[in-house]
Design a binder for these strands. Sequence first.
DNA 1: CAATATTAAAGTGTCGACACTTTTATCTGT
DNA 2: ACAGATAAAAGTGTCGACACTTTAATATTG
Lengths: 228, 228
Amino acid sequence: MQNQSSAEHNDPVTITLTDRLFDRLQRAIVEGEIASGSKISEPELARQHGVSRGSLREAIGRLEARKLVERKPNLGARVVTLSYEHLIEIYQIREALEGMAARLAAQHMSDNEIEELQTLLSEHGRQIEEQHGEAYFQKQGDLDFHYRIVQGSKNRHLIGLLCNDLYHLLRMYRYQFGMRSKRSRQAYDEHHYLLNAIISRDPEMAELLMRQHIRSSRRNVEKMLLEN
Amino acid sequence: MQNQSSAEHNDPVTITLTDRLFDRLQRAIVEGEIASGSKISEPELARQHGVSRGSLREAIGRLEARKLVERKPNLGARVVTLSYEHLIEIYQIREALEGMAARLAAQHMSDNEIEELQTLLSEHGRQIEEQHGEAYFQKQGDLDFHYRIVQGSKNRHLIGLLCNDLYHLLRMYRYQFGMRSKRSRQAYDEHHYLLNAIISRDPEMAELLMRQHIRSSRRNVEKMLLEN
DNA sequence: CAATATTAAAGTGTCGACACTTTTATCTGT
DNA sequence: ACAGATAAAAGTGTCGACACTTTAATATTG
Protein backbone atom coordinates (compact mmCIF):
# COMPACT_ATOMS: atom_id res chain seq x y z
CA MET A 1 0.00 0.00 0.00
CA GLN A 2 2.42 2.64 -1.10
CA ASN A 3 1.81 6.19 -1.99
CA GLN A 4 0.05 6.47 -5.26
CA SER A 5 -1.55 9.50 -6.83
CA SER A 6 -5.19 9.47 -7.82
CA ALA A 7 -4.15 8.79 -11.38
CA GLU A 8 -4.65 5.26 -10.07
CA HIS A 9 -4.08 3.04 -13.06
CA ASN A 10 -5.75 5.46 -15.43
CA ASP A 11 -4.19 4.57 -18.73
CA PRO A 12 -4.78 7.97 -20.31
CA VAL A 13 -2.33 10.15 -18.41
CA THR A 14 -4.64 13.10 -18.73
CA ILE A 15 -5.00 14.43 -15.25
CA THR A 16 -8.07 16.53 -14.80
CA LEU A 17 -8.21 19.55 -12.56
CA THR A 18 -10.53 17.74 -10.20
CA ASP A 19 -7.99 14.91 -9.93
CA ARG A 20 -5.22 17.20 -8.75
CA LEU A 21 -7.56 18.98 -6.38
CA PHE A 22 -8.75 15.67 -4.97
CA ASP A 23 -5.17 14.58 -4.35
CA ARG A 24 -4.27 17.81 -2.62
CA LEU A 25 -7.35 17.79 -0.43
CA GLN A 26 -6.91 14.16 0.45
CA ARG A 27 -3.35 14.80 1.53
CA ALA A 28 -4.37 17.88 3.49
CA ILE A 29 -7.06 15.93 5.30
CA VAL A 30 -4.97 12.85 5.95
CA GLU A 31 -2.12 14.90 7.36
CA GLY A 32 -4.46 16.99 9.48
CA GLU A 33 -3.81 20.24 7.66
CA ILE A 34 -7.56 20.51 7.42
CA ALA A 35 -8.63 19.61 10.91
CA SER A 36 -10.63 16.49 11.57
CA GLY A 37 -14.24 17.41 12.25
CA SER A 38 -13.98 20.87 10.76
CA LYS A 39 -16.52 22.24 8.35
CA ILE A 40 -15.59 22.76 4.74
CA SER A 41 -16.65 26.05 3.17
CA GLU A 42 -16.98 25.57 -0.55
CA PRO A 43 -16.49 29.21 -1.56
CA GLU A 44 -13.44 29.59 0.63
CA LEU A 45 -11.71 26.36 -0.37
CA ALA A 46 -12.46 27.03 -4.02
CA ARG A 47 -10.86 30.46 -3.76
CA GLN A 48 -7.84 29.13 -1.86
CA HIS A 49 -7.12 26.61 -4.57
CA GLY A 50 -8.03 28.89 -7.43
CA VAL A 51 -10.72 26.67 -8.82
CA SER A 52 -14.44 26.86 -9.43
CA ARG A 53 -16.95 25.56 -6.95
CA GLY A 54 -18.14 22.95 -9.42
CA SER A 55 -14.77 21.26 -9.61
CA LEU A 56 -14.35 21.48 -5.87
CA ARG A 57 -17.68 19.84 -5.43
CA GLU A 58 -16.69 16.86 -7.51
CA ALA A 59 -13.51 16.49 -5.49
CA ILE A 60 -15.50 16.60 -2.27
CA GLY A 61 -17.78 13.94 -3.67
CA ARG A 62 -14.83 11.62 -4.10
CA LEU A 63 -13.57 12.38 -0.63
CA GLU A 64 -17.00 11.45 0.63
CA ALA A 65 -16.85 8.14 -1.21
CA ARG A 66 -13.59 7.41 0.61
CA LYS A 67 -15.25 8.34 3.87
CA LEU A 68 -12.84 11.16 4.52
CA VAL A 69 -15.64 13.71 4.64
CA GLU A 70 -19.33 13.53 5.48
CA ARG A 71 -21.95 15.55 3.73
CA LYS A 72 -25.43 16.60 4.66
CA PRO A 73 -27.80 18.25 2.19
CA ASN A 74 -27.87 22.02 2.52
CA LEU A 75 -25.56 21.86 5.52
CA GLY A 76 -22.31 21.20 3.73
CA ALA A 77 -19.40 18.86 4.24
CA ARG A 78 -17.30 18.18 7.33
CA VAL A 79 -14.04 16.33 7.62
CA VAL A 80 -14.73 13.01 9.25
CA THR A 81 -14.32 12.92 13.02
CA LEU A 82 -11.78 10.40 14.22
CA SER A 83 -12.64 8.23 17.15
CA TYR A 84 -11.29 5.24 18.97
CA GLU A 85 -14.41 3.23 18.16
CA HIS A 86 -14.16 3.93 14.47
CA LEU A 87 -10.52 2.92 14.41
CA ILE A 88 -11.46 -0.42 15.89
CA GLU A 89 -14.11 -0.83 13.21
CA ILE A 90 -11.46 -0.29 10.56
CA TYR A 91 -9.19 -2.90 12.08
CA GLN A 92 -12.03 -5.41 12.10
CA ILE A 93 -12.63 -4.79 8.42
CA ARG A 94 -8.95 -5.01 7.65
CA GLU A 95 -8.72 -8.30 9.49
CA ALA A 96 -11.48 -9.76 7.34
CA LEU A 97 -10.35 -8.34 4.02
CA GLU A 98 -6.61 -8.71 4.35
CA GLY A 99 -7.09 -12.17 5.75
CA MET A 100 -8.95 -13.06 2.58
CA ALA A 101 -6.27 -11.31 0.54
CA ALA A 102 -3.57 -13.46 2.12
CA ARG A 103 -5.60 -16.59 1.45
CA LEU A 104 -5.96 -15.66 -2.20
CA ALA A 105 -2.35 -14.55 -2.47
CA ALA A 106 -1.20 -17.98 -1.34
CA GLN A 107 -3.14 -19.37 -4.28
CA HIS A 108 -2.53 -16.79 -6.96
CA MET A 109 0.83 -15.11 -6.49
CA SER A 110 3.34 -16.08 -9.13
CA ASP A 111 6.59 -17.72 -8.05
CA ASN A 112 8.29 -14.58 -9.25
CA GLU A 113 6.17 -12.33 -7.05
CA ILE A 114 6.84 -14.54 -4.08
CA GLU A 115 10.56 -14.26 -4.68
CA GLU A 116 10.31 -10.49 -4.79
CA LEU A 117 8.35 -10.53 -1.57
CA GLN A 118 11.10 -12.60 -0.06
CA THR A 119 13.70 -10.09 -1.20
CA LEU A 120 11.69 -7.23 0.23
CA LEU A 121 11.37 -8.95 3.55
CA SER A 122 15.07 -9.77 3.95
CA GLU A 123 15.75 -6.13 3.12
CA HIS A 124 13.52 -5.23 6.03
CA GLY A 125 15.38 -7.67 8.22
CA ARG A 126 18.66 -6.01 7.31
CA GLN A 127 17.28 -2.56 8.14
CA ILE A 128 16.04 -3.70 11.50
CA GLU A 129 19.44 -5.15 12.40
CA GLU A 130 21.27 -2.04 11.27
CA GLN A 131 19.27 0.79 12.72
CA HIS A 132 17.59 -1.16 15.46
CA GLY A 133 14.13 -0.60 14.06
CA GLU A 134 13.95 3.00 12.96
CA ALA A 135 10.22 3.59 13.25
CA TYR A 136 9.48 5.35 10.00
CA PHE A 137 11.19 2.97 7.65
CA GLN A 138 9.71 -0.01 9.34
CA LYS A 139 6.22 1.48 9.17
CA GLN A 140 6.66 2.05 5.47
CA GLY A 141 8.06 -1.44 5.19
CA ASP A 142 4.97 -2.85 6.83
CA LEU A 143 2.80 -1.04 4.33
CA ASP A 144 4.86 -2.26 1.39
CA PHE A 145 4.61 -5.84 2.55
CA HIS A 146 0.85 -5.70 3.03
CA TYR A 147 0.48 -3.88 -0.25
CA ARG A 148 2.18 -6.66 -2.19
CA ILE A 149 0.08 -9.34 -0.62
CA VAL A 150 -3.09 -7.48 -1.40
CA GLN A 151 -1.93 -7.12 -4.98
CA GLY A 152 -1.10 -10.81 -4.99
CA SER A 153 -4.73 -11.67 -4.30
CA LYS A 154 -5.43 -10.76 -7.93
CA ASN A 155 -8.91 -9.75 -6.83
CA ARG A 156 -9.26 -6.30 -8.38
CA HIS A 157 -12.30 -5.35 -6.37
CA LEU A 158 -10.61 -6.34 -3.15
CA ILE A 159 -7.47 -4.46 -4.14
CA GLY A 160 -9.49 -1.32 -4.77
CA LEU A 161 -11.31 -1.63 -1.46
CA LEU A 162 -8.12 -1.95 0.55
CA CYS A 163 -5.71 0.27 -1.37
CA ASN A 164 -8.10 3.05 -2.30
CA ASP A 165 -10.80 3.20 0.34
CA LEU A 166 -9.38 1.90 3.60
CA TYR A 167 -5.74 2.76 3.17
CA HIS A 168 -6.07 6.54 3.31
CA LEU A 169 -8.37 6.45 6.30
CA LEU A 170 -5.83 4.32 8.09
CA ARG A 171 -3.06 6.70 7.15
CA MET A 172 -5.12 9.52 8.59
CA TYR A 173 -5.33 7.76 11.92
CA ARG A 174 -1.62 7.02 11.90
CA TYR A 175 -0.82 10.66 11.30
CA GLN A 176 -3.22 12.19 13.73
CA PHE A 177 -3.13 9.66 16.52
CA GLY A 178 0.64 9.49 16.27
CA MET A 179 0.65 5.74 15.90
CA ARG A 180 4.25 4.56 15.85
CA SER A 181 4.81 0.86 16.15
CA LYS A 182 7.29 -0.17 18.78
CA ARG A 183 7.03 -3.72 17.65
CA SER A 184 8.85 -3.72 14.35
CA ARG A 185 10.81 -6.81 15.36
CA GLN A 186 7.68 -8.76 16.15
CA ALA A 187 5.93 -7.53 13.04
CA TYR A 188 8.90 -8.65 11.03
CA ASP A 189 8.70 -12.13 12.50
CA GLU A 190 4.99 -12.32 11.82
CA HIS A 191 5.61 -11.27 8.23
CA HIS A 192 8.07 -14.10 7.98
CA TYR A 193 5.64 -16.75 9.16
CA LEU A 194 3.10 -15.42 6.72
CA LEU A 195 5.58 -15.52 3.88
CA ASN A 196 6.36 -19.14 4.68
CA ALA A 197 2.69 -20.03 4.49
CA ILE A 198 2.50 -18.38 1.08
CA ILE A 199 5.61 -20.19 -0.10
CA SER A 200 3.98 -23.43 1.02
CA ARG A 201 0.88 -22.41 -0.93
CA ASP A 202 -1.21 -22.90 2.19
CA PRO A 203 -4.21 -20.54 1.90
CA GLU A 204 -5.79 -21.55 5.17
CA MET A 205 -2.62 -20.90 7.12
CA ALA A 206 -1.90 -17.67 5.27
CA GLU A 207 -5.29 -16.28 6.19
CA LEU A 208 -4.95 -17.37 9.77
CA LEU A 209 -1.53 -15.76 10.17
CA MET A 210 -2.56 -12.54 8.49
CA ARG A 211 -5.54 -12.23 10.78
CA GLN A 212 -3.41 -12.86 13.83
CA HIS A 213 -0.91 -10.32 12.60
CA ILE A 214 -3.56 -7.64 12.19
CA ARG A 215 -5.19 -8.50 15.50
CA SER A 216 -1.92 -8.17 17.33
CA SER A 217 -1.28 -4.89 15.55
CA ARG A 218 -4.69 -3.73 16.71
CA ARG A 219 -4.02 -4.73 20.30
CA ASN A 220 -0.79 -2.77 20.11
CA VAL A 221 -2.68 0.29 18.94
CA GLU A 222 -5.31 -0.11 21.63
CA LYS A 223 -2.66 -0.24 24.32
CA MET A 224 -0.87 2.76 22.88
CA LEU A 225 -4.02 4.85 22.77
CA LEU A 226 -5.14 3.97 26.27
CA GLU A 227 -1.83 5.32 27.56
CA ASN A 228 -2.75 8.81 26.38
CA MET B 1 -30.33 -5.82 3.07
CA GLN B 2 -33.69 -4.51 2.08
CA ASN B 3 -34.63 -1.89 -0.37
CA GLN B 4 -33.66 1.50 0.86
CA SER B 5 -33.60 4.77 -0.99
CA SER B 6 -30.43 6.79 -1.14
CA ALA B 7 -31.76 9.04 1.58
CA GLU B 8 -29.79 6.48 3.58
CA HIS B 9 -30.15 7.58 7.17
CA ASN B 10 -29.98 11.27 6.30
CA ASP B 11 -31.72 12.90 9.20
CA PRO B 12 -32.74 16.01 7.28
CA VAL B 13 -35.36 14.63 4.94
CA THR B 14 -34.42 17.17 2.34
CA ILE B 15 -33.91 15.16 -0.79
CA THR B 16 -31.78 16.93 -3.31
CA LEU B 17 -32.33 16.66 -7.04
CA THR B 18 -29.10 14.74 -7.38
CA ASP B 19 -30.34 12.24 -4.78
CA ARG B 20 -33.44 11.40 -6.76
CA LEU B 21 -31.50 11.23 -9.98
CA PHE B 22 -28.96 8.93 -8.37
CA ASP B 23 -31.70 6.62 -7.16
CA ARG B 24 -33.35 6.46 -10.54
CA LEU B 25 -30.11 5.84 -12.38
CA GLN B 26 -29.03 3.22 -9.90
CA ARG B 27 -32.29 1.37 -10.34
CA ALA B 28 -32.09 1.67 -14.11
CA ILE B 29 -28.57 0.26 -14.11
CA VAL B 30 -29.24 -2.51 -11.63
CA GLU B 31 -32.30 -3.68 -13.52
CA GLY B 32 -30.52 -3.50 -16.84
CA GLU B 33 -32.65 -0.73 -18.26
CA ILE B 34 -29.37 0.97 -19.08
CA ALA B 35 -27.39 -1.86 -20.57
CA SER B 36 -24.29 -3.17 -18.85
CA GLY B 37 -21.20 -1.95 -20.66
CA SER B 38 -23.01 0.81 -22.52
CA LYS B 39 -21.67 4.31 -22.73
CA ILE B 40 -23.39 7.11 -20.90
CA SER B 41 -23.92 10.31 -22.83
CA GLU B 42 -24.17 13.17 -20.40
CA PRO B 43 -26.12 15.57 -22.62
CA GLU B 44 -28.61 12.89 -23.57
CA LEU B 45 -29.22 11.51 -20.08
CA ALA B 46 -29.48 15.02 -18.70
CA ARG B 47 -32.13 15.88 -21.28
CA GLN B 48 -34.03 12.63 -20.71
CA HIS B 49 -34.31 13.33 -17.01
CA GLY B 50 -34.86 17.04 -17.37
CA VAL B 51 -31.87 18.03 -15.32
CA SER B 52 -28.66 19.96 -15.85
CA ARG B 53 -25.41 18.26 -16.71
CA GLY B 54 -23.88 19.38 -13.45
CA SER B 55 -26.38 17.50 -11.34
CA LEU B 56 -26.13 14.48 -13.57
CA ARG B 57 -22.38 14.55 -13.17
CA GLU B 58 -22.62 14.39 -9.41
CA ALA B 59 -25.00 11.48 -9.63
CA ILE B 60 -22.60 9.67 -11.96
CA GLY B 61 -19.83 10.33 -9.48
CA ARG B 62 -21.76 8.48 -6.80
CA LEU B 63 -22.51 5.62 -9.14
CA GLU B 64 -18.81 5.42 -9.81
CA ALA B 65 -18.08 5.24 -6.09
CA ARG B 66 -20.42 2.24 -5.92
CA LYS B 67 -18.63 0.71 -8.86
CA LEU B 68 -21.73 0.67 -11.00
CA VAL B 69 -20.08 2.83 -13.64
CA GLU B 70 -16.49 3.41 -14.68
CA ARG B 71 -15.17 6.71 -15.82
CA LYS B 72 -12.21 7.75 -17.88
CA PRO B 73 -11.12 11.36 -18.27
CA ASN B 74 -12.38 12.93 -21.47
CA LEU B 75 -13.85 9.63 -22.60
CA GLY B 76 -16.90 9.58 -20.40
CA ALA B 77 -18.61 7.00 -18.26
CA ARG B 78 -19.67 3.45 -19.07
CA VAL B 79 -21.91 1.15 -17.12
CA VAL B 80 -19.75 -1.51 -15.54
CA THR B 81 -19.36 -4.70 -17.55
CA LEU B 82 -20.53 -7.79 -15.73
CA SER B 83 -18.38 -10.87 -15.86
CA TYR B 84 -18.16 -14.25 -14.27
CA GLU B 85 -14.74 -13.43 -12.82
CA HIS B 86 -15.95 -10.25 -11.19
CA LEU B 87 -18.92 -12.02 -9.65
CA ILE B 88 -16.54 -14.49 -8.04
CA GLU B 89 -14.52 -11.57 -6.69
CA ILE B 90 -17.62 -10.17 -5.07
CA TYR B 91 -18.44 -13.47 -3.43
CA GLN B 92 -14.94 -13.67 -2.00
CA ILE B 93 -15.33 -10.23 -0.49
CA ARG B 94 -18.76 -11.07 0.85
CA GLU B 95 -17.40 -14.22 2.45
CA ALA B 96 -14.78 -12.21 4.29
CA LEU B 97 -16.98 -9.30 5.31
CA GLU B 98 -20.19 -11.11 6.14
CA GLY B 99 -18.19 -13.71 7.98
CA MET B 100 -16.82 -10.96 10.15
CA ALA B 101 -20.29 -9.45 10.45
CA ALA B 102 -21.64 -12.74 11.77
CA ARG B 103 -18.78 -12.98 14.25
CA LEU B 104 -19.52 -9.51 15.54
CA ALA B 105 -23.26 -10.07 15.51
CA ALA B 106 -22.81 -13.05 17.82
CA GLN B 107 -21.12 -10.68 20.23
CA HIS B 108 -23.15 -7.52 19.85
CA MET B 109 -26.72 -8.31 18.88
CA SER B 110 -29.17 -7.62 21.68
CA ASP B 111 -31.31 -10.45 22.97
CA ASN B 112 -34.24 -8.62 21.51
CA GLU B 113 -32.72 -8.48 18.06
CA ILE B 114 -31.93 -12.17 18.23
CA GLU B 115 -35.52 -12.93 19.08
CA GLU B 116 -36.72 -10.91 16.11
CA LEU B 117 -34.28 -12.77 13.90
CA GLN B 118 -35.74 -15.99 15.21
CA THR B 119 -39.24 -14.82 14.39
CA LEU B 120 -38.19 -13.83 10.90
CA LEU B 121 -36.62 -17.19 10.28
CA SER B 122 -39.58 -19.24 11.43
CA GLU B 123 -41.73 -17.08 9.16
CA HIS B 124 -39.46 -18.13 6.32
CA GLY B 125 -39.79 -21.74 7.35
CA ARG B 126 -43.56 -21.42 7.20
CA GLN B 127 -43.42 -19.89 3.74
CA ILE B 128 -41.21 -22.66 2.45
CA GLU B 129 -43.59 -25.32 3.75
CA GLU B 130 -46.62 -23.58 2.28
CA GLN B 131 -45.54 -22.62 -1.17
CA HIS B 132 -42.76 -25.11 -1.52
CA GLY B 133 -40.08 -22.45 -1.83
CA GLU B 134 -41.45 -19.80 -4.13
CA ALA B 135 -38.23 -18.40 -5.49
CA TYR B 136 -38.80 -14.68 -5.22
CA PHE B 137 -39.99 -14.54 -1.66
CA GLN B 138 -37.23 -16.80 -0.50
CA LYS B 139 -34.63 -14.68 -2.24
CA GLN B 140 -35.97 -11.61 -0.49
CA GLY B 141 -36.03 -13.58 2.72
CA ASP B 142 -32.39 -14.47 2.30
CA LEU B 143 -31.56 -10.80 1.89
CA ASP B 144 -33.56 -9.80 4.95
CA PHE B 145 -31.79 -12.38 7.07
CA HIS B 146 -28.35 -11.32 5.95
CA TYR B 147 -29.30 -7.69 6.32
CA ARG B 148 -30.20 -8.12 9.98
CA ILE B 149 -27.01 -9.90 10.79
CA VAL B 150 -24.96 -7.22 9.14
CA GLN B 151 -26.85 -4.63 11.16
CA GLY B 152 -26.25 -6.72 14.23
CA SER B 153 -22.50 -6.36 13.83
CA LYS B 154 -22.91 -2.77 15.05
CA ASN B 155 -19.91 -1.88 12.93
CA ARG B 156 -21.14 1.14 11.02
CA HIS B 157 -18.34 1.13 8.52
CA LEU B 158 -18.89 -2.53 7.78
CA ILE B 159 -22.62 -1.99 7.47
CA GLY B 160 -22.05 0.78 4.94
CA LEU B 161 -19.64 -1.32 2.93
CA LEU B 162 -22.04 -4.24 2.65
CA CYS B 163 -25.41 -2.52 2.46
CA ASN B 164 -24.44 0.44 0.32
CA ASP B 165 -21.53 -0.58 -1.82
CA LEU B 166 -21.71 -4.32 -2.41
CA TYR B 167 -25.41 -4.90 -2.14
CA HIS B 168 -26.46 -3.05 -5.27
CA LEU B 169 -23.75 -4.63 -7.37
CA LEU B 170 -24.93 -8.02 -6.23
CA ARG B 171 -28.51 -7.13 -7.04
CA MET B 172 -27.36 -6.15 -10.51
CA TYR B 173 -25.89 -9.59 -11.06
CA ARG B 174 -29.00 -11.27 -9.75
CA TYR B 175 -31.17 -9.32 -12.15
CA GLN B 176 -29.06 -9.64 -15.22
CA PHE B 177 -27.66 -13.11 -14.80
CA GLY B 178 -31.07 -14.37 -13.76
CA MET B 179 -29.81 -15.91 -10.56
CA ARG B 180 -32.65 -17.75 -8.91
CA SER B 181 -31.74 -19.97 -6.04
CA LYS B 182 -33.10 -23.48 -6.26
CA ARG B 183 -31.79 -24.22 -2.82
CA SER B 184 -34.11 -22.26 -0.58
CA ARG B 185 -34.55 -25.28 1.66
CA GLN B 186 -30.82 -25.72 2.15
CA ALA B 187 -30.32 -22.00 2.64
CA TYR B 188 -33.01 -22.05 5.26
CA ASP B 189 -31.26 -24.84 7.11
CA GLU B 190 -27.94 -23.03 6.96
CA HIS B 191 -29.59 -19.90 8.31
CA HIS B 192 -30.85 -21.98 11.17
CA TYR B 193 -27.44 -23.31 12.11
CA LEU B 194 -26.09 -19.80 11.99
CA LEU B 195 -28.86 -18.50 14.18
CA ASN B 196 -28.09 -21.17 16.74
CA ALA B 197 -24.46 -20.11 16.84
CA ILE B 198 -25.57 -16.53 17.45
CA ILE B 199 -27.97 -17.62 20.17
CA SER B 200 -25.08 -19.47 21.79
CA ARG B 201 -23.02 -16.30 21.47
CA ASP B 202 -20.33 -18.25 19.67
CA PRO B 203 -18.52 -15.77 17.38
CA GLU B 204 -16.06 -18.30 15.99
CA MET B 205 -18.80 -20.68 14.96
CA ALA B 206 -21.01 -17.91 13.62
CA GLU B 207 -18.26 -16.71 11.32
CA LEU B 208 -17.47 -20.22 10.18
CA LEU B 209 -21.08 -21.00 9.35
CA MET B 210 -21.65 -17.72 7.56
CA ARG B 211 -18.61 -18.30 5.43
CA GLN B 212 -19.72 -21.80 4.58
CA HIS B 213 -23.16 -20.51 3.75
CA ILE B 214 -21.81 -17.91 1.35
CA ARG B 215 -19.36 -20.37 -0.18
CA SER B 216 -22.09 -22.85 -0.85
CA SER B 217 -24.22 -20.11 -2.31
CA ARG B 218 -21.31 -19.20 -4.55
CA ARG B 219 -20.87 -22.78 -5.70
CA ASN B 220 -24.55 -22.87 -6.53
CA VAL B 221 -24.17 -19.77 -8.64
CA GLU B 222 -21.11 -21.12 -10.39
CA LYS B 223 -22.93 -24.29 -11.32
CA MET B 224 -25.95 -22.35 -12.51
CA LEU B 225 -23.88 -20.10 -14.72
CA LEU B 226 -21.86 -22.90 -16.26
CA GLU B 227 -25.11 -24.49 -17.42
CA ASN B 228 -25.80 -21.52 -19.71
C1' DC C 1 -33.44 41.99 29.77
C1' DA C 2 -34.66 37.71 27.69
C1' DA C 3 -36.99 35.46 24.24
C1' DT C 4 -38.90 35.51 19.96
C1' DA C 5 -39.57 37.59 15.30
C1' DT C 6 -37.34 39.83 11.32
C1' DT C 7 -33.86 40.78 8.28
C1' DA C 8 -29.25 40.41 6.25
C1' DA C 9 -25.34 37.55 5.18
C1' DA C 10 -23.30 33.41 3.90
C1' DG C 11 -23.64 28.88 1.97
C1' DT C 12 -25.40 25.15 -0.88
C1' DG C 13 -28.00 23.34 -5.04
C1' DT C 14 -28.80 23.90 -9.81
C1' DC C 15 -28.25 25.78 -14.19
C1' DG C 16 -26.46 27.40 -18.84
C1' DA C 17 -22.33 28.82 -21.36
C1' DC C 18 -17.63 28.42 -23.10
C1' DA C 19 -13.04 25.99 -23.86
C1' DC C 20 -10.75 22.10 -24.95
C1' DT C 21 -10.68 17.00 -26.34
C1' DT C 22 -12.29 13.12 -28.77
C1' DT C 23 -14.90 11.17 -32.38
C1' DT C 24 -17.01 11.26 -36.74
C1' DA C 25 -17.44 12.89 -41.38
C1' DT C 26 -15.32 14.91 -45.34
C1' DC C 27 -11.75 15.90 -48.35
C1' DT C 28 -7.24 15.17 -50.81
C1' DG C 29 -3.77 12.92 -53.32
C1' DT C 30 -1.88 8.82 -55.25
C1' DA D 1 -10.72 3.07 -54.29
C1' DC D 2 -7.99 3.61 -50.20
C1' DA D 3 -4.86 5.81 -46.56
C1' DG D 4 -4.00 9.58 -44.45
C1' DA D 5 -4.93 14.58 -43.64
C1' DT D 6 -8.53 18.05 -42.50
C1' DA D 7 -12.70 19.93 -40.91
C1' DA D 8 -17.09 19.55 -38.56
C1' DA D 9 -19.78 17.55 -34.80
C1' DA D 10 -20.37 15.76 -30.41
C1' DG D 11 -18.77 15.20 -25.78
C1' DT D 12 -16.37 16.29 -21.51
C1' DG D 13 -14.14 19.65 -18.20
C1' DT D 14 -14.54 24.00 -16.05
C1' DC D 15 -16.53 28.22 -14.94
C1' DG D 16 -19.64 32.08 -13.22
C1' DA D 17 -24.39 33.30 -12.09
C1' DC D 18 -28.87 32.79 -9.86
C1' DA D 19 -32.37 30.53 -6.62
C1' DC D 20 -33.28 28.63 -2.46
C1' DT D 21 -31.78 27.21 2.42
C1' DT D 22 -29.42 27.83 6.57
C1' DT D 23 -27.05 30.68 9.81
C1' DA D 24 -25.90 35.07 11.91
C1' DA D 25 -27.14 39.58 13.16
C1' DT D 26 -30.49 42.85 14.26
C1' DA D 27 -34.77 44.44 15.72
C1' DT D 28 -39.12 43.91 18.41
C1' DT D 29 -42.03 42.98 22.22
C1' DG D 30 -43.65 41.33 26.74
